[in-house]
Measured scan of single mutants.
Amino acid sequence: MEVRTIKVFTTVDNINLHTQVVDMSMTYGQQFGPTYLDGADVTKIKPHNSHEGKTFYVLPNDDTLRVEAFEYYHTTDPSFLGRYMSALNHTKKWKYPQVNGLTSIKWADNNCYLATALLTLQQIELKFNPPALQDAYYRARAGEAANFCALILAYCNKTVGELGDVRETMSYLFQHANLDSCKRVLNVVCKTCGQQQTTLKGVEAVMYMGTLSYEQFKKGVQIPCTCGKQATKYLVQQESPFVMMSAPPAQYELKHGTFTCASEYTGNYQCGHYKHITSKETLYCIDGALLTKSSEYKGPITDVFYKENSYTTTIK
């Protein structure tokens, strides 16, 4: 009895394709271990004539594949690729409408935090270190965002349907971005203890939790000093293409032309909904596939993004 075979390709990165001759009487799992086709788990399936010449994702289970996976995804987590594939199996079914010149995501599976993050990423200057993220990001900007969303979920250790947080998501993504040249110098002034300067680099240099107003941050924000008295913390120097200011959701007025974009969060910790506000020729609110415009805006804002380049204080 002759062994019926077909020729397929296996890959971990969709760049390096490895030619395989597979036995049609055995499952993919018996031949390769966990195997995925377009995100779908085909591990328990036997090869079919229609699979001839198709590319299958496999887990990096030998040295060659491990090197290829690390170079593309910059992670050695053995569960990463499987999590990416199972997320992709959902995100490829989502709709990605162009809204006001940006790629958004039609609401499904509690994905409003991903839509808000995706919209924000198209408006701030950011370059990702893992080629996987950078490639998928370019495709997302062009309207094909399924891979990018699935990668975000995998890097953030999230599953489809789980509630997510924009600030946490951005923080994970910033860790995989090139923020080497970003720098922030802060000064804390206390009447009792004097003053202390701190220099922050990388992710810490672009994120701040405690106030939404970048102007206020430049002037000074009140913080408790270690001595128990009130101290003032203010920005001395900022070198970065953008800054992200966050605070627990509270009524906040966004003035046209003073910011790049913002995240609105309605609801409580267990259950809520994100919308995205962007400042173009007027203010726009993007909620999944829905767009509304207004000249002014007041609502429960939790993150505001500002364009920056270089700032030095005039406070002496």
Rank of each mutant, 00 (worst) to 15 (best):
T282L: 11
G202H: 02
G39P: 04
L81G: 07
V160D: 01
C271A: 10
S310V: 15
L212I: 09
H90S: 12
A136Y: 09
T302L: 00
Q20R: 11
Y72E: 07
Q230G: 07
M170H: 04
P130A: 10
L173R: 04
G33H: 03
I286D: 02
D23Y: 11
K191T: 14
V189T: 11
T313V: 13
P224L: 14
H51M: 09
N187S: 13
G164M: 01
L153G: 03
F70Q: 11
D63A: 10
V12W: 06
K280T: 10
K106I: 09
K229M: 15
S279I: 01
T312H: 14
D287H: 00
L212M: 05
C156H: 01
A69Q: 12
L133K: 05
T103W: 09
C182N: 03
Y138H: 13
E296H: 15
H74S: 07
Q270L: 11
T116F: 02
H273R: 00
A289I: 10
Y172T: 12
G202D: 05
N111V: 01
G53R: 12
G220I: 02
A142I: 15
A247S: 10
Q123R: 02
A150G: 05
T11N: 04
F56C: 06
N49D: 15
H276S: 05
N61C: 09
G210M: 01
H276Y: 07
T266E: 10
E71T: 12
A132L: 04
F305Q: 00
E296W: 13
E168C: 07
I105E: 02
V8L: 11
T169P: 03
E215W: 06
C182A: 11
A142K: 14
P300W: 11
T120I: 13
S79E: 06
L163C: 13
V160G: 05
Y297P: 00
Q196K: 14
Y265G: 05
A250T: 15
Y36V: 06
T169G: 00
Q197H: 07
A40T: 14
T55A: 12
N187I: 11
I105V: 07
K46W: 14
I45D: 15
G161Q: 05
F217H: 03
A87Q: 08
T211L: 08
Y284G: 06
E71V: 05
E52K: 10
A40S: 13
T292R: 09
Q216E: 12
G53H: 12
F174W: 06
K307P: 12
V185P: 03
K93G: 10
Y234V: 09
M24Q: 14
D165F: 02
T116E: 03
L114K: 04
T278P: 00
A145N: 04
Y138G: 13
Y274I: 00
L179Q: 02
C190G: 02
I105Q: 05
K183L: 12
G272R: 01
V3D: 14
Y214A: 01
K92H: 06
D62T: 12
V166Y: 06
K158Q: 05
I286L: 07
E144I: 06
A136R: 03
G202L: 00
P78W: 15
G29W: 09
T43A: 14
L114W: 06
D62C: 15
Y252W: 12
G101K: 06
L254W: 03
L102Q: 03
T312M: 14
L151G: 04
V58Q: 07
Y274E: 00
H273N: 00
S181L: 10
P97C: 15
E71M: 08
V3N: 13
E71S: 09
C156S: 10
C261Y: 01
K219Q: 14
Q230L: 14
S240Q: 03
N178Q: 10
A250E: 12
E308G: 07
M24N: 11
V160C: 08
K92W: 05
R139I: 09
Y265L: 00
T91L: 04
K46H: 14
T282S: 13
L118W: 03
V189N: 13
T278I: 13
T64M: 12
Y36C: 06
F217S: 05
Q122H: 03
K233L: 14
N14V: 06
N309Q: 12
V3H: 14
Y96A: 03
T120C: 13
A177G: 06
Q195H: 13
G39E: 12
P97Y: 06
L118P: 03
L254Y: 00
V166R: 01
E239H: 12
E264Y: 00
N110Y: 02
N100C: 11
Q270F: 06
T159D: 15
A117D: 01
Y84H: 00
E204A: 14
A69V: 09
N16I: 10
N100R: 09
N100K: 11
F56E: 01
A205N: 02
F70K: 08
D303A: 01
A262H: 00
D23F: 11
S310F: 09
A150T: 03
A247D: 05
